[in-house]
Write a protein that binds this DNA or RNA. Structure first.
Lengths: 115, 115
DNA sequence: AGCAAACTAAACCGATTGGTTGACAGACAT
DNA sequence: ATGTCTGTCAACCAATCGGTTTAGTTTGCT
């Protein structure tokens, strides 16, 4: 059966459930960023944004290295890939449903034409 | 740019962040289930499990119909597909990283041979 | 040495979460 | 009619979350 009791997935999905953090990931996809650069567009205190960064780090979604007094963050995509793999388990299921829906629509058209 | 400020994704990932709820989804993938059937393996009060079902329902992940005194739940895969689509945005990014990693490993091998 | 910049840590706050129990409602059986 | 089964709702609780402010640390600048 499908594996669902995974602390990894807990923290991962939890981290992804916040728009501020998803925004940070999107920003990181364009290249490495310091905490300050990640925090700038966030419309909240610096410390607040820094906590979001920590959540992402704890979820394994970013790594950081120190460069002078700045902390440079890099997107770590592996956990995203894991989440995607988990979601893909349902692909067959929802394709079936879509096929059924399509068939239903098709049948509706025919009835309209014939009736 | 990537779209990240989506209330849909907030509730969706939030709903997926709990192992009890992921377990319910897995159970639902095998077929329709009553609330009682979903709650049975949950090791918590009936009302507690019922609240989890409601979270999944609010996230659009399941729909229910009443049959006598039972509520029958059906998995709704569309939101899962949406989440998967969102995650797939990073596919190119992490493939790049994997390629770079692979190149690094390859270079390591060569150096071992030549040095 | 002294000050500013880039962060983290800790204490605090209100709102939400995940769970409980107990009371209630609707549908079925006798 | 009474009781039972399935499920919701409301109240409550501790813990976590998302945010703040204040203080402290490390690094760089002059």
């Amino acid at each position: 059966m499908v594996e669902f009791d995974s602390p990894q997935l807990n923290t991962l999905f939890q981290a992804l459930a916040d728009p501020t953090r998803r925004g940070m990931l999107a920003s990181l996809a364009l290249g490495e960023k310091s905490i300050g650069e990640l925090a700038a567009p966030c419309d909240m205190s610096f410390a607040g944004a820094s906590k979001h960064v920590k959540v992402l780090e704890d979820a394994g979604l970013l790594s950081r290295r120190k460069a002078g007094r700045s902390h440079i963050c890099t997107l770590e995509a592996a956990p995203l890939a894991q989440a995607e793999r988990w979601l893909r388990q349902w692909e067959q299921f929802w394709n079936q449903r879509l096929d059924r829906l399509e068939a239903l629509i098709e049948r509706g058209k025919e009835e309209k034409q014939n009736g």
